[in-house]
Simulated assay, not measured.
Amino acid sequence: MAQERTGVATLKGNPITLLGPELKQGDQAPDFQLNKSLVDVVSLKDFAGKAKLISVVPSIDTGVCDAQTRRFNEEAANLGDNVAILTVSVDLPMAQARWCGAAGVDKVTLLSDYKDNSFGEAYGVLIKELRLDMRAIFVIDANDTIQYVEVLSEMTEHPNYEQALAAVKALV
């Protein structure tokens, strides 16, 4: 059974419980299995040798999640080919693909944690009460060591884009 962490996050001021460990800078990034489509699955090793910025959002169809994903898509051009930008949510892969087409997002890879929430649990961002992943940013180097973590304390707030981007730029 996953570790339960209380008192670390809220949704509109109401306490929520996060499942999984609290990952920190210097930790080895846990492997994951995420769906790129209903049948195609990717893992951490699919991005081997690249710096990774993993942007975790509760649902792509909400305002802050939409803005967060668009912002990282815009910044991708400045980061080069040695950086993989991943957005993880529990939205179904078809909904993610539809959103990307409508939004013109083409530089960020959207991946779904819908099947078993294993990413959320491994990265300590699975919200017990909602079965969604908490808004968070993880920057992981080419050797799969975590270099930057921001798990937001309030789900509806934006992450610190500048700090996350500075962390990934320091790796390339």
Rank of each mutant, 00 (worst) to 15 (best):
A166N: 15
D61F: 01
V139Q: 13
N82T: 07
T62R: 00
M155S: 14
E162P: 10
I60R: 09
Q33F: 05
D116C: 08
Q28N: 13
G80L: 08
H158C: 11
A95D: 15
A77P: 12
K36D: 04
C100A: 14
G80Y: 05
L130A: 14
A76W: 01
A136D: 03
V64M: 04
L152D: 10
A164Y: 12
Q96G: 12
A136Q: 03
C100L: 06
A29T: 10
Q28P: 13
K45Y: 04
L130N: 14
A84I: 06
A76Y: 01
G120N: 03
G80E: 08
S59E: 11
D27I: 13
E150A: 07
A95R: 15
R71T: 15
P58E: 00
G101F: 02
E162M: 12
C100Q: 09
I137E: 00
V56K: 13
S37R: 11
R135I: 12
K115M: 10
Q33S: 13
A142C: 04
S89A: 07
P159Y: 06
F72C: 07
N73C: 06
Y114H: 05
V168A: 08
A136L: 01
R71L: 13
C65W: 05
A51D: 05
N73Y: 02
G124P: 05
L126F: 11
D81W: 10
D46W: 05
A51N: 08
Y114I: 00
P93E: 13
C100H: 01
I146P: 02
V56W: 08
R98F: 12
Y148W: 04
D61Q: 11
K36Y: 14
D113I: 07
S55R: 06
S43V: 01
I54M: 05
P159Q: 14
E74W: 08
R135L: 11
N73H: 01
A142P: 08
D46N: 10
G120E: 07
D81S: 15
L171Y: 01
V64N: 01
D106W: 06
A103V: 11
K169W: 02
A103Q: 13
N78S: 15
D113N: 00
N78F: 11
D61E: 12
V88W: 10
Y161P: 04
S59P: 10
T156D: 00
K36V: 14
T87A: 12
L110R: 09
P58W: 06
A166G: 15
E162I: 12
D141V: 04
I54E: 07
E75M: 08
